[in-house]
Amino acid sequence: MSAVFSPPPAALPTDKELVLKVIPMPADTNGNGDIFGGWVMAQVDLAGSVLPARYIQGRMATVAVNEFIFKQPVRVGDILSFFSAITRVGNTSVTVEVEVYAERFSAQGQYVKVTEARLTYVAIDHQGRPRPVPKHNAPA
């Protein structure tokens, strides 16, 4: 019988904003009993859109998942905290980094980094075409 790998607890980031908290449920599991990666990706996409929405001020679409790394499995009952920071504001797009930390059901108060990603969102008009990101609406 092998020991289960348990990474050391991680400190929550202070340079990113908490944008989402969610608890995965049994219906979100894969065949191994862990949370399905696609479910995690969907939550990261939602969390990633929070800060760009402040810049874009209207419709937007995910144009790229530039990087997505699953570092540890996510389990039923984990409390997931999604932290985000803007890394680039372009003419029509905003790029954001998202880090996901799990507070394990069995180890409350301790966090493990489970996922990190970088996504790009593009501002779109009502016809779905790229439009400029408003410069006057960008937060200071």
Rank of each mutant, 00 (worst) to 15 (best):
G48C: 03
R75M: 14
V44R: 03
S84Q: 01
W39C: 01
V76R: 02
A47Q: 00
F70C: 05
V4S: 10
A27E: 13
S84T: 08
R75W: 09
D15V: 01
D34P: 01
A42N: 02
S6Y: 10
T87D: 13
P13R: 06
R59S: 06
T14K: 13
L51K: 04
I56R: 04
V98Y: 07
S106A: 15
V76E: 08
A27C: 12
Q57T: 10
G58K: 12
D34A: 10
V22H: 11
D45Q: 04
T87Y: 08
Y111D: 08
K16M: 13
V89Q: 07
S6P: 07
A107W: 14
G48E: 02
I23D: 03
D34M: 09
I86N: 07
E103A: 02
E17A: 14
F105Y: 14
V76C: 02
S81E: 03
K71Q: 05
K21E: 12
A61H: 05
P52L: 13
N32F: 14
A27V: 12
Y55D: 07
R104F: 00
K21P: 01
K16S: 07
S81K: 03
E97Y: 10
I56Y: 01
T92S: 12
F68W: 03
L12C: 12
T95R: 08
L80G: 02
V100M: 06
A107P: 04
I23N: 10
R59A: 09
D15T: 01
V65S: 03
A102R: 01
Q57Y: 05
E103Q: 07
V96G: 00
R104Y: 05
E97I: 14
E99N: 09
T92P: 02
S6K: 11
A11I: 10
V89F: 01
A85E: 09
T92I: 04
G58M: 15
Q108A: 10
E103K: 00
K113R: 15
G77V: 01
L12E: 10
P26V: 15
V114K: 06
K16Q: 08
N91T: 11
P26K: 14
Y111F: 11
E103G: 02
G48D: 07
K16Y: 06
G77A: 09
S93E: 04
F105L: 15
P73G: 02
I69W: 00
T62W: 00
L51H: 04
V40T: 12
I69R: 11
V96L: 05
G38A: 11
D34S: 09
S93Y: 03
A3H: 12
Y111V: 04
G77S: 09
P73E: 13
G77E: 02
Q57M: 14
V89R: 05
T29A: 10
G31R: 10
S106Y: 12
G37H: 00
M25N: 15
A53F: 12
Q72S: 09
D45N: 01
K113N: 12
V44S: 05
N91K: 11
V4C: 07
F82R: 00
E97L: 11
P24V: 13
A64Y: 08
D34W: 05
E99F: 02
Y55S: 07
T62S: 09
S49A: 15
G31L: 14
V40H: 06
Y101R: 00
V4E: 12
E99W: 07
G77R: 03
S106K: 11
Y55G: 08
V96W: 05
A61C: 01
L51N: 00
V112F: 08
T29E: 04
V40I: 15
